[in-house]
């Protein structure tokens, strides 16, 4: 029977992180970038929990994960509100073209 250890979790989380990062960097659609952010946050959550489980940190890992979930929810709410405003303003959610502050 395959023994599931710490590094399995880490591999999963790093794959998840890479996917999130890739989505953040490459997607032009704001919604997809937000989804990438969620993936990165969840990758971090997995790490927290995994380290909490295998390390000697008490329950602080789980606590932090919970904290991140709450933060992610808040972040998603604000970000989606921005995206909706963005859409109202530009009729699209392409972040490359929302560069009015640059000039």
């Amino acid at each position: 029977m395959l023994h599931v250890g710490l590094h399995h979790f880490l591999v999963v989380s790093s794959i998840l992180f890479s996917l999130g990062l890739y989505a953040i960097v490459t997607r032009k659609n704001a919604i997809l970038v937000l989804m990438g952010v969620e993936l990165v946050l969840n990758a971090a959550n997995i790490n927290f929990v995994a380290f909490a489980r295998y390390g000697d940190f008490g329950a602080s890992g789980q606590l932090n994960a919970l904290f991140v979930i709450v933060l992610a929810a808040a972040e998603a709410a604000i970000a989606l509100a921005i995206v909706i405003n963005l859409y109202k303003h530009f009729s699209h959610v392409n972040i490359d073209e929302a560069d009015n502050l640059k000039e």
Binding site: L21, I24, I95, D96, D99, L101, K102
Partner: peptide, 9 residues
């Protein structure tokens, strides 16, 4: 560029 994505790269 002013694009966060580039900076992240």
């Amino acid at each position: 560029t002013g694009k966060v994505q580039t900076y992240i790269v």
